[in-house]
Design a protein around this nucleic acid. Structure first.
Lengths: 200, 200
DNA sequence: GTCTATACATCGATAGAC
DNA sequence: GTCTATCGATGTATAGAC
């Protein structure tokens, strides 16, 4: 057994524990809110003592950062795997539906990714790069429809984020606002087609 | 000097101190975030000891509740004092502009009123009644334009809240999203006029 | 009402033994 | 890596002097 193999197995075990901790952190966030995560509760869920968590995350912010990255990776995987069927408008509609679905499916994730609610938390450059990739993915699809102005993208994110935000703030667990995603997208498309240049 | 006069003056002084505490709490919220308010810091700002705050607020949640009420009173005062000039559409536009202006003018206030970010905090029925009055004020103006569907109001709050939310989350202190309030309202009005019944 | 003083529980974080 | 023990800060609350 070479040293490399021992190192690999240790690294794999380390990574596995890290993911067990992250899973437990998400569960806690869904139950008690993002800011309600306590490191003692979290450690108890994975049968560790609270200081032992520091072998996996340098700080609570570091844990949040890992959750931030994980959340965007999940969203990216869903959006990037969307089949490119229909015209550009239908592709935007499919993206918008996936976005609102994923947000209501895990509101703690949406809160972490799309609101600035944790005092002092800023994602690391590495994690923020994932957020930028997600935004680029939206921009690509809007560009394909001829919506190339900066304002087109900003208005899109505002409308979709607005539906999700109202849903989370005023009726968590319901669907009163996110059910409007198709009407909201109709509204957005009608307006932006008029504003924009030539059709695609 | 009657007993009533003494009582009045004591009550007035009590109220004045209460407002000094609230002012300091808002200042702290703007500097360190809503959840970053510490009762010891707060007491120091108004030259009191921490236990003395309990002469004015029964708990920290009670303080948040007073801030919640104060915030909605400020918004209500601005919206209700809007002169009713122009057609219903222009009145909606004026309301939307006032809303976004007030939100970016004090993002800590907007966060308290329009997001569920404080773990465990729920406004009291009295304070929530102010929030309902604010929503009714919006509904009145939308009704006057013939936008009487529930979805019309929900879409309006989603669009306006979405602009503010994106502004706070992605560019605090800037105006990239709230500058789109007029275009967003054009988009909303065009769409909702088509959807709605007879024009006003 | 306001103060001093104190108590308790919880939190994130660190030191050092093993 | 994991543990025990501990730290300082926090929110909450109370007792008792003035």
């Amino acid at each position: 057994m070479t040293n490399e193999q021992v190192t690999d197995r240790r690294a794999a075990r380390h990574q596995a524990t890290k993911e067990r901790i992250l899973d437990a952190a998400w569960a806690l966030a869904r139950e008690q809110g993002l800011a309600g995560i306590s490191l003692r509760d979290l450690a108890a869920r994975v049968d560790l003592r609270q200081p032992s968590l520091y072998s996996y995350f340098a700080s609570k912010h570091d844990l949040y950062d890992a959750m931030f990255a994980q959340g965007y990776e999940q969203l990216l995987a869903s959006v990037e795997s969307l089949e490119l069927v229909g015209d550009p408008y239908e592709q935007i509609r499919a993206m918008a539906r996936v976005f609102t679905d994923l947000c209501v499916a895990d509101m703690a994730r949406a809160q972490l990714l799309f609101q600035r609610t944790l005092p002092g938390f800023e994602p690391s450059p590495e994690s923020y790069a994932l957020a930028s990739r997600f935004l680029d993915e939206a921009k690509r699809r809007l560009d394909a429809a001829g919506f190339t102005r900066d304002e087109d993208l900003d208005l899109y994110t505002a409308v979709m984020g607005g539906l999700v935000n109202q849903q989370m703030a005023n009726e968590p667990g319901g669907s009163r606002w996110v059910d409007l995603v198709d009407e909201a997208l109709d509204m957005y498309l009608e307006h932006t087609m008029k504003k924009g240049g030539p059709t695609p």
